[in-house]
Structure formats: structure tokens, C-alpha cells
């Protein structure tokens, strides 16, 4: 007659094999085992089963499971090399565009005063030359400013000689503020001219010879029209060209610096990355 092995018995036998019983439990089981053959068979089968499982070959990992930074979720700091490279390229392209624009703009501007020159060639310039002298004129700032623009220089070079030929009465010239303190050459020449020769006589001779067309004395009423024309054209052109040129220089320098710095940074970071 065989007794049924309960789940409780199985647990006790299994734990006995693993030496997980208390000393009291172990002693109790060993007493039972001495008397119970079925229990002995059961524990022997469990022991062999356990041994078979434990004899299974050890399995080694087929590969290394080490983690890369990406797998570990560690964000790599973005490599600066591509950023520097892009910045350098963009700065270079922009620099090239600015240089082209500057060159083309400069050419346009040097051609721009031509109509003014033509205008100065007309009889009116004789008055215009005088009119540009007054201190309130933008060109009255001195020789240094006169050199900042080619157009200004051209205007002045044309205007200055005309003063010598201008048959303007002294009273008129003084009234128009010709001997301004800041415009040295034209003012001095005009003053000298006015002092040495009586204006009405010169005017009369020139008018008789017909050397200069329209050099006849112009009534004050007419003078009020032409002075408004020429000084306005000059005063608009000159400061704009100066500001424009300065802006271009600054922009070009800044872009060139950015291109150079980022270019060097790209080279350095690329070396660092490849090393």
C-alpha cells in the first residue's frame, strides 16, 4: 500500500535537498525518511532531477552586451566642427556678396555726380560756386571732408576756378556769405579776386568779350532760384556716400573676421575629433 505524496511533502523534500530547512524540520523529515520507503524514492528522484538540471552546460553570452553612449541614452554634445564649418562658409559667401555690392555701388556712385558736373558747366555754376561756400553748406566743413568723396572733389575743383571768372559784384558776394571761414581756397581766391579788381569792370569786359556765356550780372531775383538747386544736390550725395562706404567697410571687416575665426575653429575642432 502506497501513501500519497502531498505538495507539502514535495516542498519539504525539495527544500531539504537545497538545505533550506530549519534544523527542526530537517530532523523531522529524516525521521520520516528512515521509516517511509516511498518518501525515500521520491526524494531520490527529485535529487536526480535536480542534478540533471544542474549539469546543464553553462551558457556563455554570445557577444558582449556593453552599452554605447547612444544605447545608454547619454546625449553626446553636438560636435562643433560642422557648425563652425557652416558659419565660416556662410560668412565667406556673405562677404563675397557684400564686396560685389560694394564694388558695383561704388561704380554707380562715381558716375552719379556727372549730371551735377554738367549742371555746373552751365552759366549758373558761377553763382553756384559762390553759393556752396557759405558756412551753412554741408561742404563748408573743411578740406578733410572734401577729400572723402570723389564727387565732392570734382564739384569743388569745378567750382573753385569758376569763382575767379565770376563777375559778381562784391556786394553780392559778401551778401551771400562767400568768404566763409571754413572753406579756405575758394573763399580766399574769391576775396583776393574781389579785392584786386572791381567786379563790375571785369564783368563788363567778360560780357563784352563773350568768353563766358551768361556771365552777365544776374539780378538778385534770379539768384534765388539756382542756389536752391545745386547745394541741395551736393548735400544729398556726399554724406550718403560717406556713410554708405563706412557701413560697407565695417560689414566687410566683421564678415571677414567671422569667416576667419570660424574657419580656424573648424580646423582645430576637426583635428580634435579625428585625434
Amino acid at each position: 500500500m502506497t501513501k500519497k505524496i502531498t505538495n507539502r511533502d514535495l516542498e519539504t523534500l525539495s527544500a531539504y535537498l537545497d538545505e533550506q530547512l530549519t534544523s527542526r524540520e530537517r530532523a523531522q523529515l529524516e525521521r520520516r525518511l528512515q521509516k517511509d520507503q516511498e518518501l525515500q524514492n521520491e526524494i531520490e528522484q527529485l535529487r536526480r532531477t535536480r542534478q540533471l538540471i544542474r549539469n546543464l552546460p553553462k551558457v556563455r553570452a554570445p557577444r558582449n552586451f556593453t552599452l554605447s553612449p547612444e544605447m545608454a541614452g547619454i546625449r553626446k554634445v553636438p560636435r562643433p566642427y560642422p557648425i563652425y564649418r557652416l558659419a565660416s562658409a556662410l560668412a565667406t559667401i556673405l562677404l563675397a556678396l557684400v564686396l560685389i555690392s560694394d564694388f558695383l555701388g561704388g561704380q554707380q556712385f562715381t558716375q552719379a555726380p556727372q549730371p551735377e558736373k554738367a549742371l555746373l558747366g552751365t552759366p549758373a555754376p558761377s553763382i553756384a560756386a559762390v553759393q556752396e561756400i557759405p558756412p551753412e553748406s554741408p561742404m563748408g566743413g573743411g578740406a578733410a571732408e572734401q577729400q572723402t568723396s570723389e564727387s565732392t572733389e570734382e564739384v569743388m575743383s569745378l567750382a573753385a576756378p569758376s569763382t575767379t571768372e565770376t563777375p559778381m559784384p562784391t556786394g553780392e558776394a559778401v551778401r551771400m556769405g562767400a568768404p566763409g571761414k571754413t572753406s579756405q581756397a575758394p573763399a580766399a581766391a574769391l576775396a583776393e579776386k574781389q579785392a584786386s579788381e572791381p567786379a563790375p569792370e571785369t564783368t563788363g569786359e567778360a560780357a563784352a568779350d563773350g568768353v563766358i556765356e551768361g556771365s552777365t550780372p544776374i539780378p538778385p531775383g534770379e539768384m534765388t532760384v539756382e542756389p536752391e538747386l545745386l547745394p541741395t544736390a551736393i548735400s544729398e550725395a556726399t554724406p550718403t556716400s560717406f556713410t554708405r562706404g563706412l557701413s560697407y567697410r565695417i560689414l566687410e571687416v566683421v564678415l571677414a573676421l567671422i569667416a576667419l575665426i570660424t574657419g580656424f575653429a573648424a580646423i582645430i575642432t576637426r583635428r580634435g575629433t579625428s585625434a
Binding site: N7, L10, E11, L13, S14, A15, D18, Q20, Q45, L46, R48, T49, R50, Q51, L52, I53
Partner: peptide, 27 residues
């Protein structure tokens, strides 16, 4: 303790079907 005992018991029953493969010492 419970899961291990029952697992071993089932493995033993299952391996009875492979007795011809088992070494004599492990029958």
C-alpha cells in the same frame, strides 16, 4: 519553495518520457 518543488516534480515526470536517454545513474 513551492514553485521550485512543483517545477522539479513536473520536470521529473516529463523526463520519464526520455528515460532511454538518461544515464543509468540518473534513471
Amino acid at each position: 519553495k513551492s514553485r521550485l518543488a512543483r517545477a522539479r516534480s513536473r520536470l521529473r515526470d516529463c523526463l520519464q518520457g526520455y528515460r532511454e536517454l538518461l544515464p543509468s545513474a540518473f534513471r
